[in-house]
Amino acid sequence: MPEKIDFSKVSFLIVDKSPPTARLIRDILHVLGVTAIRIADTVERARKMLRRDPVDVIITEHHLGEESGLALIEWVRTAPDSLDRMTPIIMLTANSEEDYVVRARDIGVTEFLAKPFNVEGLYRRLVAVIARPRAFVNADGYFGPDRRRRQVPYTGPDRRRSDD
């Protein structure tokens, strides 16, 4: 029997300063059966909400005013007062050029989706973060999802310095 996703069990935080966009994402999630949805228009408000009560999934824009979506990701992943450092984060943004994608990836975003977006693209990201969770990496200067998308078997010797 094929697997299904019961979105009614999943809580979301949408961070976007454009009210029509935040409402559209909220309405899409409602159709999927989500009932626990909070909306913040700044990073500061998002942090306040998350300090009180963490959510299962965060959907954030990059361009949010004084502080960007990257600041939110960094806070979730590294701050001592972040209640869940492994929260899946989808960046849904009109800042979609390659350098933005790379910076988001290197700060610990889970999925990235460019605006303008379509419902299939958003749904695929939701399925990915809920049904296909990724391993996390804790290393010098990085805490976040494993950035390797493809696992390529390597049979040669381990040549990293720390193994000398």
Binding site: K4, V10, I130, A131
Partner: peptide, 15 residues
């Protein structure tokens, strides 16, 4: 934990 909570064989939306 999130997968356990939301993914099942009977209720919800197809993948």
């Amino acid at each position: 934990d999130l997968k356990k909570k939301a993914v099942n064989l009977s209720k919800g939306f197809d993948m």
